[in-house]
Amino acid sequence: MLVVAAALFDGAGRVLLHQRPHDKHHGGLWEFPGGKVEENESPEAALARELAEELGISVDSRAFAPACFTTGPLPRGGDGALVILLYTCTQWRGEPRALEGEAVAWLDLTSCAGMDLAPLDQLLLADLSGRAGR
């Protein structure tokens, strides 16, 4: 299963985290916003669609820069693997708000580590933080 996510950075260098709906897998945990890539959809187009659905923002798919990826087991023990592609983005239209989740928060990368992150988002954050420190 291919999933895309965005590390949205504001002008102060903070990144947006999105709290998962309580009734979903990993409910209440924090994550980078995004979602599943649908059939015949590019990862960037899927991410633009997901950010519009989840946060109410509009992003040109050319504004995404590949950052890192991680893999893990499918939710609820399904067969196969989950692959998450993380992109960074600094340009969008609209004010991000939690349309499908519980909340959003703007944090510096160091503060993100103190949040209750979904397991694969912990790995993405570590990779993203390592790249930022270079």
Rank of each mutant, 00 (worst) to 15 (best):
M1L: 10
M1N: 10
L2V: 07
V4I: 06
V4Q: 12
A5Y: 02
A7E: 12
L8V: 03
F9G: 05
F9H: 10
G11N: 08
A12H: 08
A12I: 00
R14W: 07
L16W: 11
L17P: 01
H18T: 10
P21F: 00
H22G: 09
D23P: 06
D23G: 06
D23Q: 13
H25T: 09
G27F: 01
G28K: 01
E31C: 07
G34Y: 00
G34P: 04
G34R: 01
G35R: 02
V37P: 03
V37L: 08
E38Q: 14
E38F: 11
E39Y: 07
N40K: 14
E41W: 13
E41Y: 12
S42A: 15
S42I: 08
P43T: 08
E44K: 08
A45D: 15
A45V: 08
E50N: 12
A52N: 13
A52I: 00
E53T: 13
E53R: 15
E54F: 02
L55Y: 11
G56K: 05
S58W: 05
V59N: 13
S61N: 09
S61A: 14
S61W: 07
S61K: 11
R62W: 06
A63M: 10
A63Y: 06
F64V: 10
F64M: 09
A65M: 05
P66L: 14
A67S: 14
C68Y: 07
F69H: 15
F69R: 15
T70D: 01
T70H: 01
G72L: 05
G72S: 06
L74G: 03
L74I: 07
P75M: 03
R76G: 09
G77L: 09
G78Q: 09
D79L: 02
L82K: 14
L82Q: 15
V83R: 12
I84E: 15
I84H: 11
L85C: 06
L85T: 03
L86C: 09
T88V: 13
C89K: 02
C89G: 01
T90A: 15
Q91A: 15
W92A: 10
G94D: 01
G94M: 03
G94Y: 07
E95S: 13
R97L: 12
R97Q: 13
A98N: 05
V104D: 11
V104P: 14
L107S: 12
L109Y: 08
S111K: 13
A113N: 04
G114V: 01
G114E: 03
M115E: 15
L117Q: 03
A118Q: 11
L120T: 01
L123Q: 15
L125R: 01
L125W: 08
A126F: 02
A126W: 01
D127G: 10
D127L: 13
L128P: 02
S129T: 10
S129P: 02
S129F: 07
G130C: 04
G130S: 06
R131P: 04
R131V: 04
G133M: 05
